[in-house]
Design a protein around this nucleic acid. Structure first.
Length: 200
DNA sequence: TGCACGATGAAC
DNA sequence: TTCATCGTGCAC
């Protein structure tokens, strides 16, 4: 993989030793996890292919009191994973045609999560990755991975040792206008200037 | 059992 | 602004 001379400065080049994020990484408040996930690598191995994307845009969902969060509906078959322990994937079908992937955060019962909204292609990623639906499509993520442990070998998030300074932009979350004042909270975070952010 | 509505993306 | 398309949650 060649860096490409004179490419946009917002693109990451460095890929060093991959260190899988430990359980304690996810066992923190959703905002802290959301911000810390920016720049980390989402890794999914399936059908003998390892696909890697660098996370550049996320949204935090704080729990049942957050009216924009699915867990605001309470404990249901669908939200069961959100109410479970941290470091697991909450994957659901939206609008009958796209999948969205979340990372469960905070201790069991808190039902907080971070939605992955966009990644920058790093390895074996074809197609667009700007937006939660396209991200899942390109990374071959679907409902079969709902509840999957993110400390597994085939599906996890890793720190590749990149120490690039990131300027993080805070914005309101997308598509949650039904949630009253929660829609105005600045709970969407993305890497400033990155070309793969869905809605800069 | 029926029905309204999405944490979306693409076309018009 | 409209629409594709279907699982989920809740009303009846």
């Amino acid at each position: 993989m060649s860096p490409g001379v004179g490419a946009a400065p917002a693109v990451f080049y460095h890929v060093g030793i991959m260190r899988k994020l430990p359980r304690v990484f996810y066992d923190r408040d959703a905002v802290a996890v959301a911000r810390a996930l920016l720049g980390k690598c989402l890794v999914h191995r399936s059908e003998d292919v390892e696909r890697v994307g660098r996370i550049v845009e996320v949204e935090a969902y704080l729990g049942p009191h957050d009216l924009a969060a699915h867990s605001a509906k309470g404990l249901t078959p669908r939200t069961r994973v959100m109410f479970g322990p941290p470091g697991h994937a909450y994957v659901y079908l939206i609008y009958g045609m796209y999948h969205c992937m979340n990372v469960v955060t905070e201790r069991e019962g808190r039902a907080a999560a971070v939605l992955l909204r966009a990644v920058e292609p790093v390895k074996n990623v074809e197609g667009r990755t700007q937006g939660p639906g396209l991200l899942c499509q390109a990374m071959h993520i679907d409902k079969r991975l709902n509840g999957h442990d993110l400390l597994s070998e085939d599906f996890h998030i890793a720190d590749d040792g990149s120490r690039r300074r990131l300027t993080i932009v805070k914005r309101p979350r997308i598509g949650v206008d039904y949630s009253g004042h929660w829609a105005r909270r600045l709970l969407r975070f993305y890497v400033a200037g990155n070309d793969f952010v869905s809605r800069p």
